[in-house]
Simulated assay, not measured.
Amino acid sequence: MDVQEATRRAIRRHNLVALGANLVVAVSGGTDSMALLHALAALRDQKTLKVQITAASLDHGLRGAEGAADAAYVLEQCERWQVPCVTGSADTLALVSSRKLGIEEAARFARYRFLAKVAQDTGADRIATAHHADDQAETVLMRLLRGTGVAGLAGMGYEAPMPYTPEYTVIRPLLNVTRRQIEAYASAQGIAPRHDASNDDQAYTRNYLRQSLLPEIETRFPGAARALAQLAESAAVDNAFIEAMLEVQTAAHTRRLSGKITISRQHFRALDLALQRRFLRKTIRELGMNEEIGHEHILAAVEVLATAETGAIIEFPGGLSARLEREEITIIRRVDG
């Protein structure tokens, strides 16, 4: 599958970008994001995609000179492809301490905060990322192992509210393209991407899934990665219906304010158990948390919210909490810095 054609089809089929819109592209310097940026720039030049593209590249502050070199490489390539580029840096380790997050989640928070700032500065409301079919398989497998429901099995969508700042939308035009196809495209286009050595460190969960666990599963069950991606697609269809039902049941009883979401206590307790769980998971996602909060947290929280007395507080990882008030249930996320 040609990456340019796959990108064009995904954008048109799923209405990912409006005509004449400003689009931020998240670029690390690696194969996937460089291939996506090249494809989008080519479609722009061919007048097939009439949008304004801005690349955004963040040095997470974890790899010293290598991180700075990645940003310099992205800038150089953007000049060649005539794509405006914004670079930035973050102190991820400081976020680990201040927000009490694992290093992966802290880096994710820093990255999305940076992308939101670039989107704001460029007048964009959509950010393109290079998540692909293999990433989808890894996501579904990771959620299965941690414990999940239908929403988790749906994996990543072609578009979704951006974590931490849901007023922006993340789009994923490569979600139906495999890593092998992306690598073939990059090679054919003469793209020589940077290599992030931290992606080889299997202390990180996703690296372990990608490099050890999923390949081992594939040796016993060939095609397992594709089957996981297909499971995500099927679950996404069912999930969309359930989400629509949830909206019908809760919209009139829910308020969304800066950094917090509230729902009528009486109405929450009247919901079916499936919708109680779904509401809490959706709220957590809208407030920017997902991967750090497992199914067991959801089960325990729903039990407390449905039965405890006024004043009860539930603490989640990542500075998220739910508080049982007299008339309402409030879910709030602490934001530091």
Rank of each mutant, 00 (worst) to 15 (best):
V3E: 01
A6V: 02
A10K: 06
R12S: 14
L16N: 08
V17N: 00
L19C: 08
L19H: 14
G20Y: 10
V25L: 10
V25Y: 04
G29V: 02
G29N: 07
D32H: 07
A35T: 08
H38L: 06
A42R: 13
L43K: 05
R44G: 05
D45H: 12
L49V: 06
K50Q: 15
A55D: 02
G61A: 10
L62R: 10
A71P: 00
Y73C: 06
Y73E: 07
V74I: 09
R80K: 15
R80S: 12
V83R: 02
V86L: 04
T87F: 00
S89V: 10
A90G: 06
A90F: 04
D91F: 08
D91W: 07
L93T: 09
V96K: 01
V96R: 00
S97I: 11
S98N: 09
G102E: 08
E105R: 12
Q120V: 04
I127P: 00
A128G: 07
T129M: 11
H132I: 05
H132K: 07
D134K: 06
Q136H: 10
E138S: 13
M142S: 15
R143P: 00
L144E: 03
G149N: 11
L153W: 03
M156E: 04
G157D: 11
Y158F: 15
A160H: 07
T165C: 12
Y168L: 13
Y168W: 13
R172I: 00
R172M: 06
P173M: 06
L174A: 09
R180E: 13
Q181D: 11
Q181H: 10
I182S: 02
I182Y: 01
E183L: 07
A184F: 02
Y185D: 01
Y185Q: 03
A186T: 08
A186K: 04
A186G: 10
Q189W: 09
G190R: 09
A192T: 12
P193V: 07
R194M: 14
H195G: 06
H195A: 13
S198E: 12
D200E: 15
D201N: 15
Q202H: 06
Y204D: 03
T205Y: 10
T205C: 03
N207K: 09
N207L: 08
L209S: 06
L214H: 04
P215E: 06
T219M: 10
R220L: 12
F221S: 11
P222G: 13
L228E: 00
A235H: 06
A240T: 14
F241R: 13
I242G: 00
E243K: 10
M245F: 03
L246E: 04
E247M: 09
A251W: 06
H253N: 07
I263Q: 00
R269A: 04
L275R: 02
R278F: 09
F279W: 15
L280Y: 02
T283K: 05
T283C: 11
I284S: 01
G288Y: 00
G288Q: 03
M289F: 00
M289N: 03
I293H: 01
H297T: 01
V302I: 08
E303R: 13
V304N: 00
T307D: 08
E309K: 14
I314L: 11
P317H: 09
L320A: 02
L320K: 03
E327G: 14
E327N: 14
E328Q: 15
I329H: 00
T330A: 13
V335H: 13
